[in-house]
Deep mutational scan, measured.
Amino acid sequence: PVYLSVKADNSMFIGNDPVTDETMITALNALTEGKKDTTIFFRADKTVDYETLMKVMDTLHQAGYLKIGLVG
């Protein structure tokens, strides 16, 4: 499974590897070998604001990742 996490300080990680807004999709493409039907499990600290969550989800959708599971 692929886990994308947003921490309380808005830092992002794919698994244990830090990513930025600019590198997130490139890292996901490498990890999933470009398979856009891969489910991305998205988790965020409860203090992360809604705007940040939606920005990340919008970026995922624009890149073609449509299977996003929200996890606690």
Rank of each mutant, 00 (worst) to 15 (best):
D21I: 15
G69I: 15
T26W: 09
V48M: 05
K7S: 08
I25L: 10
G64Y: 02
T39F: 15
F42Y: 03
T38A: 07
G69K: 15
D9R: 06
H61M: 13
F42W: 02
I68F: 05
M54T: 10
E33I: 06
A44C: 12
S5R: 11
T39V: 14
M12K: 05
L60S: 00
P1D: 07
K35E: 06
M54P: 00
M57C: 08
E22C: 05
V71W: 07
L28D: 00
I68M: 04
Y3T: 08
T26G: 12
T52M: 11
D58L: 13
R43N: 10
K36T: 10
I14Q: 01
D37Q: 07
L53I: 15
F41H: 09
V48N: 03
M12W: 06
V6W: 07
V6R: 04
F42N: 00
F41S: 03
L28V: 04
T59E: 06
G69L: 15
S5K: 07
L53Y: 08
F41V: 11
L31E: 03
M57F: 12
P1R: 09
L4V: 12
I25E: 03
N10H: 12
A44R: 04
G72N: 12
M12A: 02
T32A: 03
M24K: 00
I40S: 00
T47I: 06
Y65L: 01
D17S: 12
D58E: 13
D21Y: 15
D58Q: 13
G34T: 04
L4T: 01
L28G: 00
A63R: 02
E22A: 12
I14V: 13
Y3N: 04
R43M: 14
M57W: 09
K46V: 10
P18K: 11
Y3K: 03
E22G: 08
F42C: 07
V2G: 01
M24G: 00
S5A: 07
M57G: 02
P1N: 09
T38D: 03
T39R: 11
L31Y: 09
L70T: 10
K7M: 14
T20Y: 05
E33R: 14
K7E: 09
G72I: 14
D37N: 11
L60E: 00
T59C: 08
F41E: 07
N16H: 11
N29E: 13
L31M: 08
Y3S: 04
V56P: 00
L70F: 14
D21F: 15
V48Y: 03
M54Y: 09
V2L: 09
T39Y: 14
D17A: 11
K67A: 08
I68N: 02
T39A: 10
F13E: 04
D37S: 08
A8V: 06
K7N: 12
L60K: 00
I25W: 03
T20P: 03
M57I: 14
D45F: 04
G34W: 04
K67I: 12
I68L: 06
M54S: 09
N16W: 06
L31F: 08
A30K: 13
L28Y: 00
M57N: 02
P18S: 08
N29Y: 08
G64I: 01
T52S: 06
G69M: 15
K67W: 09
G72K: 10
V6D: 00
D9N: 09
T59D: 06
D45L: 03
Y50W: 13
T26K: 11
K7Y: 15
S11K: 12
K67Y: 10
K36I: 05
E51R: 12
F41D: 03
P18A: 10
D49M: 10
T39D: 06
E22F: 07
N16L: 09
P18E: 11
L70I: 13
F13N: 03
R43S: 14
T23E: 08
D17E: 14
S5D: 12
S11A: 08
L4S: 00
L31S: 05
A63I: 03
F42A: 03
G34V: 03
G34R: 05
Y65M: 01
G72H: 11
K46R: 10
K36Y: 08
T23F: 05
S11R: 13
Y3D: 03
S5F: 15
G64A: 02
N16C: 15
L53T: 05
T39M: 15
L60M: 03
K7L: 14
L60H: 00
Y3H: 08
N16D: 12
V19N: 01
D37A: 07
L31Q: 06
A63P: 00
V48F: 04
A63G: 07
T39N: 07
D17V: 15
T39S: 06
I40A: 00
R43F: 14
N29L: 09
K55F: 07
K36P: 05
K67L: 09
G64F: 02
S11N: 08
D49T: 14
V48D: 03
V6M: 13
T38E: 05
D9I: 04
N10Q: 10
H61Y: 13
V6K: 02
L70K: 04
M12V: 09
V2M: 05
S11L: 11
V2A: 03
T32S: 04
T26D: 14
D37C: 08
P18R: 13
I40F: 01
V19S: 02
D58A: 14
N29V: 08
F13D: 02
Y65T: 01
T38I: 13
K46H: 12
T38Q: 08
K36H: 07
I14H: 01
V71I: 14
K67V: 12
A30P: 01
M57S: 03
M54V: 11
Y50F: 11
V2H: 02
A44K: 04
T38W: 05
V48K: 02
T38Y: 07
T23H: 06
T26L: 12
F41M: 11
A27N: 06
T47H: 13
L28Q: 00
M57K: 06
V56D: 00
L28W: 01
T59V: 13
S11C: 10
S11H: 08
G15H: 04
K36L: 10
Q62G: 09
D17K: 13
E51L: 13
D49K: 14
F13Y: 13
S11E: 07
M57H: 04
L4P: 00
F41K: 04
G72S: 12
A63C: 03
T59K: 14
E22N: 07
A44T: 08
Q62C: 07
A30V: 10
G69T: 15
H61V: 10
L53Q: 05
G69V: 15
L70V: 10
V56Y: 08
A44F: 13
T47P: 05
D45P: 05
V56N: 02
K35A: 08
T59G: 05
I14G: 01
F13C: 08
G34D: 05
D17H: 13
D49W: 05
S11Q: 12
P1Y: 14
K7V: 06
G15Y: 04
D58C: 11
V56M: 08
Y50G: 08
D37G: 09
T52W: 14
F42Q: 00
F42R: 00
T23P: 01
D17Y: 14
G15T: 02
G72W: 06
K55G: 05
M24W: 07
A27M: 15
L53P: 00
H61F: 12
N10C: 09
K35P: 02
L60N: 00
D58S: 12
T26F: 11
T39W: 15
V2K: 02
F42E: 00
L53A: 04
L53R: 08
M57Q: 04
Q62S: 11
F42D: 00
T38N: 05
R43Q: 13
I25A: 04
K46C: 13
T59M: 15
V6I: 15
K7I: 08
G64V: 01
L66D: 09
D49C: 10
V6L: 12
G72V: 13
L53M: 08
L31T: 06
T39K: 12
